[in-house]
């Protein structure tokens, strides 16, 4: 295979990797907030259930979770959905990352001083106003470095979609490597991941700069 065809193939795979990346962020960040609320619930049963959910998702390999999501409708209920590879990957990634984001949010929310809540209460802010106008904007600043870490990890984790043979960049790199009996596609893929992550780190640094207007 010529080098240009290989680049084209890997670039196509990169698009799919970015698709997994984008959709996972889109779904897992809000979902993580819900999970975080569940985890921080005053109801001990609710917080226990969400705590268990988080510990399972953080404590088992993502690759395994992807397989479970994809194959379980069949093995558990005998339902044959057919080829829903891509949705299954997005579901698997989203719930896994939601668990991590939930804990990051929690750490941020717990770092907000009690006085902020009391000031909001005295000023008659409602509970949701207090959260979205006072607490959450401050939480974002606190958790940004941790979120950046998580996002960079996600870029690399998209390669785990190979376990469901989704044609993202790493899967394609493996196939080209098999065809041409060489390691070159892996090196190119590594370069692609690295450049994408440089971009991610740059964007996140801009966010951090934007939020540096207060201490």
């Amino acid at each position: 295979m010529s080098f240009s065809v290989m680049l084209e193939q890997l670039a196509q795979g990169m698009c799919k990797s970015m698709l997994i990346f984008g959709l996972t962020l889109l779904f897992s960040m809000p979902l993580g907030l819900l999970v975080c609320f569940g985890r921080m619930s005053k109801n001990r049963l609710v917080s226990g259930i969400f705590g268990f959910f988080i510990s399972v998702l953080r404590g088992t390999p993502l690759m395994l979770q992807l397989m479970v999501v994809y194959f379980f409708p069949y093995y558990l209920f005998g339902i044959s959905i057919g080829n829903w590879r891509f949705p299954a990957i997005i579901v698997g990634f989203s719930i896994n990352y939601a668990a991590y984001f939930a804990e990051i949010y929690r750490s941020g929310i717990e770092a907000i001083p009690k006085g902020q809540y009391e000031a909001a209460q005295i000023l008659d802010y409602s509970k949701s106003q207090t959260f979205f106008k006072i607490v959450f904007p401050q939480v974002i600043k606190i958790i940004l470095p941790a979120v950046t870490n998580e996002i960079i990890t996600l870029v690399k984790d998209t390669s785990l979609a190979f376990s469901l043979a989704y044609m993202e960049m790493f899967t394609i790199a493996k196939q080209i490597a098999a065809r041409d009996t060489t390691f070159v596609p892996y090196i190119v893929a590594a370069l692609f991941y690295y450049i994408f992550n440089l971009l991610v780190a740059f964007v996140m640094r801009q966010f951090e700069k934007k939020l540096s207007y207060y201490n």
């Binding site: 295979m1 084209e8 193939q9 043979a165 394609i172 490597a177 065809r179």
Partner: peptide, 13 residues
């Protein structure tokens, strides 16, 4: 797709 010559990626991808 990593099992030539039975199934694999050709030079055009």
């Amino acid at each position: 797709a990593e099992y030539p010559p039975y199934g694999y990626m050709d030079e055009n991808g």
